[in-house]
Design a protein around this nucleic acid. Sequence first.
DNA 1: TTGGGTTACCACGACC
DNA 2: GGTCGTGGTAACCCAA
Lengths: 91, 91, 91, 91
Amino acid sequence: MDDDQTNTEGGNTIGGIAAEALRQAIERIERLEEEKKALSDDIKEVYGQAKAQGFDPKIIRQIVRMRKMEEAEREETEQLLDLYKAAIGMA
Amino acid sequence: MDDDQTNTEGGNTIGGIAAEALRQAIERIERLEEEKKALSDDIKEVYGQAKAQGFDPKIIRQIVRMRKMEEAEREETEQLLDLYKAAIGMA
Amino acid sequence: MDDDQTNTEGGNTIGGIAAEALRQAIERIERLEEEKKALSDDIKEVYGQAKAQGFDPKIIRQIVRMRKMEEAEREETEQLLDLYKAAIGMA
Amino acid sequence: MDDDQTNTEGGNTIGGIAAEALRQAIERIERLEEEKKALSDDIKEVYGQAKAQGFDPKIIRQIVRMRKMEEAEREETEQLLDLYKAAIGMA
DNA sequence: TTGGGTTACCACGACC
DNA sequence: GGTCGTGGTAACCCAA
């Protein structure tokens, strides 16, 4: 029901746009991005603490990156295997 | 056994490096990054839902960006105001 | 000193900008991008030929991707090793 | 030689797959992608040089983009013109 | 403190 | 229309 500005309660729409749903989506996004930023800050803090303990952040970053790549490669291999299986008719 | 041979108590070290602390830092970082990725996926999902409701994600992104900028601007103004107040002795 | 439009030979500048150098940079970029596009087309053609021979492009892409990741991981490992060596004073 | 044991002639196959053709396609693709990457690096270098000469890379990118669009537009106009000419019997 | 290099994020376009 | 890959931008880090 495409109500317009004469609408005074639930399901209000403006110019054919479900304003309330839009507002909620935007707020949800903003909330999630805040949480994401908080996590980024946490990560930065961990690096800072590690550095304070005498670890080189550069090395830690490299290790983290490497482990991520190993994991990714493992997944890629698995996917390739699935593709092969599909190609030769193995469900 | 993760201890090295010269180590006599809890804080095991290898080559002068507190291996356990390093391991914990790395795992903590990996965990935080996973959570971060989950949030990114959530955000993407919200955009997807909004799109399914007929909203243009591009526009939503722009709105979010604008609101962020306005927020930043507002804070800046506030800080400037505080500075002025401090300058003239207004606690 | 910054010549302007009255300049009739080498080192001409307009509004303090070395127009000729700028023009050359732009043309160089455009030329390189053309070559790049040609290569993209070549790649597409190879995929097309492979498909015509009965190969699934999807699988080929996956293989190519995987091999690239293996190579990247190998390099990362090497870099990590270098970092460790540097950290313990091995030039 | 790379043939498999059951193969008796030139077109070696494994599990019904022309393995050699596949291998060649993959290597060809990898080679082309390397060249493509080299060009990308060259482009980046040109931007770097331009920047070192005092040009703003961002502006240069915009110019390149604009010229590409103009070129596309020009071609479109030309095609339209050809269409019209064909429609009225002008070879 | 700032500039330059590097990295991660985001938006666009190509391809399917 | 949905997905994927790529290019551009902005943040961050280090070095000078």
